[in-house]
Amino acid sequence: MGFPDTFLDNTPLGVIHPPVHPLSLTALATLNIELFMGDPSPRLTNILCRILPTPTLTSTIIEYSVWSSVEYCLQGRWADVDRWLARMAGNIRVQEGLSATLIRWPRGESVPEGFLREFRKAGGKIKTDSARQWFG
């Protein structure tokens, strides 16, 4: 049985409750998303949407090559990722909460307030890691 790759009615990801064919990952502690360029694909956000809130999840790591275009990232599917992260952060039972680490973040730059806004509102913490860069 295969899951559909697209939403049936084009409804924004965060509005769909409950997710179709939910994935209940009862022991999940770390989720790592790696993107080279471009938005998160529809299939990626579709899979994320299906992962039910997991009380054990403490860490998400987002590795991306072009954070320099973060203004662009404030919209579109990043907003879907934000809503999913917010949903996860709101259901964490561990004391330290849920953190999202942005890998390859440009050195010396702060994260715009609007980026992952819903996640932060839900208590999620954002960290950056500039140690590894694609160029220089």
């Binding site: 009862t26 022991a27 998303i33 993107l35 080279f36 998160p40 899979i47």
Partner: peptide, 14 residues
């Protein structure tokens, strides 16, 4: 679903 502790997804492929 009952065993996975760490999940890594590559969002796209080039």
């Amino acid at each position: 679903s009952e065993t996975v502790v760490e999940l890594k997804l590559y969002g796209m492929w080039l």
